[in-house]
């Protein structure tokens, strides 16, 4: 289902982290949020899954303003894979996935027949069935990430929110994870650090910088040399692969061997306007 973010602003601790952000993700599309650290990716996602109420603007999932829904109703529309989880490692894979049924549970918090079916089906689909009885603490980082994805899927969401889902995964697991997500057929909005991954998997790329959307569109339109230089402060060579997706080769904007030279160059480069001479 579609996601519309309309003019969202947010302050955290008196500091404005999102300025009038708007974006649209079409039904079934995979949207990648990219931007440097602190650009507001996680904050924007938090306004989508109701962890932070925006000061202005609306977030519409499937046409419904999520901030006018109850917490439970919103969580039946939107499944979330959080960036990190520090607790709950004593729970088994199955118990963790069953937590995804929380917004569907009735008064006494018991799993009914349908809940059990959904959990079993999700375990199957994510290839976790053989690990079902293992505690999270015994799993590898890649497996744990798959468990948290499975928990989000057990919510039976129409929209999947992923916050840095490929952090801490090795390259093979990054690719496997995103292949799995792509194959789900749900609308996805994901904050991604890896620009190559965004180029390879996203239908839409939204660039955030300093809490503002600075570019959005297809990977080919957005992930250009200019944007990569002005927003991320990196030099790049971009070409197009056989499927029409951009292929990125990134390198530092500055390659001075002397430290002082390097940092002054980095500072200049970071401040240079799009397309400007920064080197």
């Amino acid at each position: 289902m579609s996601l519309v973010v309309d003019g969202v602003s947010l302050s955290v601790g008196g500091r404005r982290v999102l300025h009038d952000v708007s974006l649209t993700v079409a039904d079934g599309a995979f949207a990648a949020l990219v931007g440097p650290n602190g650009s507001g990716k996680s904050s924007l996602l938090r306004t989508v899954f109701r962890a932070r109420r925006p000061e202005t603007g609306r977030v519409l999932v499937d046409g419904a303003d999520v901030w006018r829904l109850t917490a439970g109703r919103a969580a039946r529309l939107t499944g979330v894979l959080l960036q990190e989880q520090h607790d709950g490692f004593e729970f088994t894979v199955e118990e963790t996935v069953a937590q995804g049924r929380t917004p569907h549970l009735s008064g006494f918090d018991r799993l009914d027949r349908e809940d059990r079916l959904v959990v079993a089906e999700v375990l199957d689909r994510t290839g976790l069935a053989p690990l079902a009885a293992r505690p999270l603490a015994e799993l590898s980082g890649g497996e744990r990430q798959r468990v948290l994805l499975a928990r989000a899927l057990a919510q039976r969401p129409r929209l999947l929110v992923l916050d840095e889902p490929t952090n801490h995964l090795d390259v093979r697991h990054q690719l496997e994870f995103l292949e799995l997500v792509r194959g789900l057929g749900v609308t996805v909005v994901a904050a991604l650090h890896g620009l190559e991954l965004a180029a390879a998997y996203a239908d839409t790329v939204v660039v955030l910088d300093g809490g503002r959307v600075t570019a959005s569109g297809t990977p080919r339109d957005v992930l250009t040399q200019d944007v990569l230089r002005s927003t991320f402060g990196v030099d790049s060579a971009v070409d197009v692969d056989a499927t029409g997706r951009p292929r990125l080769a990134l390198r530092p904007l500055c390659a001075c061997p002397v430290r002082e030279c390097h940092w002054s160059c980095v500072r200049r480069g970071a401040r240079a306007p799009a397309g400007g001479a920064g080197v």
Binding site: R50, A51, R73, A75, V80, Q85, D87, G88, T102, D109
Partner: peptide, 23 residues
């Protein structure tokens, strides 16, 4: 005991609560 599943989610933190529909 009837609310214990939600208490389990609460321990995971506020973001997890929002994600799983627990106020």
């Amino acid at each position: 005991v009837a609310r214990a599943r939600r208490l389990n989610v609460l321990v995971l933190g506020d973001d997890a609560c929002a994600a799983l529909g627990v106020h």
